[in-house]
Amino acid sequence: MKAPLKRSNAPIFWALFGAGGMLSALLGPMLVFITGLAVPLGLLLPADTMSYPKMLAFAQNFIGKGFIFAIIALFLWHAAHRIFHSLHDIGIHAGTGAKLLCYGSAMLGTLIAAYALLAIGF
């Protein structure tokens, strides 16, 4: 081909997209059920499952922290990638601007989640 080939940086975003997709497919419905239906409606789970002290303890635990971080960050990267490519598909080729907006907000969300999880202590 004419121009020299430039290596695409897509694997970074594609890997985050893939990881987020896998995680949301496996855990998303379960999380929607627990946080959106079971707890508020008092189905199956004890009423205080998501009480403040319990959630705080969860977020202060190492594994709990990792879980919350992975869920928030990877879901965001998955969504950002999906939205960016869907924009392209419907004919909005906003290029760098759209890329910055989509992946930038995922990055911002990731940083806020990391900061909050660290600030809450161990």
């Binding site: 080939l5 290596r7 695409s8 598909d89």
Partner: peptide
């Protein structure tokens, strides 16, 4: 693989 990895490569596919 240089072609596969490039900006003209497989990641254009959705």
């Amino acid at each position: 693989m240089e072609l596969i990895n490039s900006e003209e490569g497989v990641f254009n596919c959705t």
